[in-house]
Design a protein around this nucleic acid. Structure first.
Length: 383
DNA sequence: AATCCGTGGGA
DNA sequence: TTCCCAAGGAT
C-alpha cells in the first residue's frame, strides 16, 4: 500500500533543496555550456544531447556530443546534411533510429518552423524522436517553462523520497511519479530547468540504483525511504530478460584497389540503415542454409575460395549474436565496372537475408562516412 | 500494451 | 566471467 502523498515532503522545500544542491554540484558537461543569443541554454544543443542521452550513459555521450556539434553546429547544418553523415556521426552509440529521428526533427524545424526552434511544449513534443520526457527537458531547460520530466533517475528519486511501493513501470506508479514531478516543477517555477537537471543529477550521482550515498544527499532528512531504511528496496529489482541466440555469417570481400564489398541494411529493425559486409542471418542450428549460401552464387561461385578469418560474439539487450566472417577476393578488378556491385544471378529466397540492391564497393575512407555498427566496424575496418 | 532497439564500463 | 545497467520513443 502506497503511503499518503499528502504526508510526504513539501514540494517547495524539495524543489528548493534540489535547485540549491544542483547549483553547487552540477557536473561540467558540454551541453550545459551551450548557450544561444538569449543567454539561455541552446534548444538545438539540448535536443541533440537529450536524443543522445536516451537510454545511454553520460560517459558514452560527452565526447561524441562535442564532435557532433562541431560537425553540425546548427539546426540548419544538420537539416542540410546527408543522412549517411548523421548515421556515421552516431556510429557506436547504439539505438540508431534516434539519429534518423533527430535528422528528421532538424528538417521539420527548417520546413515547418522556418528554422526557428519551436518554443511551446506541444510543438516540441510533436518533433520526431521527442516524447514526453524529452519535450519536458527541452521546455524546462532551454525555455525555462515549468514543465515536468520523468526519466529513470527522477522516477527512482521520487519513489524513494515518498517510499512509493511497487515497480516504477506500472501504469499506476507512472501516473503517480509524473504527477509528483509536475507538482515539483510548478513549485520551482522558472527554476524548473535546474530542478529537473538536479533531480537527474541526484539520481545519477547520489541516489543511485545500488548502494545510494544517502549521507551526501540534500534530501536525506526529508526522504521516507531513508527514514525507513528502504532505500535499497525501492524500486524493487527488475526481472532479468532472456536473450535469443543468432548467427550472422558475413562475407569480407576485397578487390585490388583496397575496396570492400558492403550492403545497406533495411531502414527498420536492428542496425537499421547501417552498412555491413554482405551477411546472411540465421539461427545457430541452420548450418545447411549457411553452407548453401557460402557455396552458392553469393559465395564461392562469385569469389572463389573463402576462408574463415574471424569469429566473435556480441551480446545485445535481447539477443546474443555470433559473427562468423569469411574472407574472399574479387577475381577481377572492379574498377572497370560501375561502383555499384552487380546483383547475383540468383538470390536465396526466404527470410533472414538482406536484398543486395544496395551493394557498393567502398574504400576505408568512404566507410568512415557511413553508419557502421560496432561489430561491422570491427569486421570492415579492423580492431 | 508489449516489444523492439545497442553499447561498453563496472560490479 | 557474467550480469547489470543508462537522460525513452515508436509501433
Amino acid at each position: 500500500m502506497a503511503r499518503d502523498q499528502a504526508g510526504g515532503p513539501n514540494d517547495h522545500a524539495v524543489a528548493g533543496a534540489v535547485v540549491d544542491w544542483f547549483a553547487r554540484h552540477a557536473r561540467d558537461l558540454p551541453w550545459r555550456r551551450a548557450t544561444d543569443a538569449r543567454g539561455g541554454r541552446c534548444p538545438y544543443a539540448c535536443l541533440v544531447s537529450e536524443l543522445m542521452l536516451q537510454q545511454t550513459q553520460v560517459s558514452r555521450v560527452t565526447d561524441r556530443f562535442v564532435r557532433f556539434m562541431a560537425q553540425f553546429p546548427t539546426v540548419a547544418h544538420l537539416a542540410q546534411a546527408e543522412e549517411s553523415r548523421v548515421l556515421a556521426a552516431w556510429s557506436g552509440l547504439g539505438y540508431y533510429r534516434r539519429a534518423r529521428l533527430l535528422h528528421r526533427a532538424a528538417r521539420e524545424i527548417m520546413a515547418r518552423h522556418d528554422g526557428r526552434f519551436p518554443a511551446s511544449p506541444a510543438e516540441i513534443l510533436a518533433l520526431p524522436g521527442v516524447g514526453r520526457y524529452t519535450a519536458g527537458a527541452i521546455a524546462s531547460i532551454a525555455f525555462g517553462l515549468p514543465e515536468p520530466i520523468v526519466d529513470g533517475n527522477v522516477s527512482r528519486v521520487l519513489m524513494r523520497l515518498w517510499a512509493r511501493d511497487g515497480a516504477s513501470t506500472t501504469p499506476d506508479n507512472q501516473r503517480w511519479v509524473w504527477a509528483r514531478a509536475r507538482a515539483l516543477a510548478s513549485a520551482a517555477g522558472d527554476a524548473a530547468g535546474p530542478l529537473n537537471e538536479g533531480l537527474m543529477e541526484l539520481g545519477a550521482t547520489v541516489c543511485t540504483p545500488g548502494r545510494p550515498r544517502c549521507d551526501s544527499c540534500p534530501l536525506k532528512t526529508r526522504c521516507a525511504a531513508h527514514r525507513a531504511g528502504l532505500q535499497d528496496l525501492i524500486p524493487p529489482a527488475k526481472t532479468r530478460t532472456t536473450s535469443t541466440a543468432l548467427l550472422h555469417v558475413c562475407l569480407l570481400v576485397r578487390d585490388g584497389q583496397g575496396r570492400v564489398l558492403v550492403e545497406q541494411r533495411p531502414a527498420a529493425g536492428l542496425w537499421g540503415g547501417l552498412w555491413q559486409a554482405p551477411t546472411i542471418e540465421s539461427l545457430p542450428g541452420e548450418r545447411g542454409k549457411i553452407a548453401r549460401w557460402l557455396c552458392g552464387p553469393e559465395g564461392v561461385a562469385a569469389w572463389g575460395r573463402l576462408t574463415l578469418c574471424d569469429s566473435f560474439e556480441r551480446r545485445l539487450t535481447h539477443r546474443v549474436i555470433t559473427f562468423e566472417v569469411w574472407a574472399g577476393r574479387a577475381v577481377r578488378s572492379s574498377s572497370t565496372r560501375s561502383r555499384r556491385a552487380s546483383a547475383p544471378a540468383v538470390w536465396p529466397r526466404g527470410g533472414h537475408t538482406v536484398p543486395p540492391a544496395s551493394r557498393r564497393w567502398l574504400t576505408a575512407e568512404e566507410l568512415e562516412r557511413v553508419g557502421l555498427s560496432t561489430p561491422q566496424r570491427r569486421i570492415l575496418l579492423g580492431g
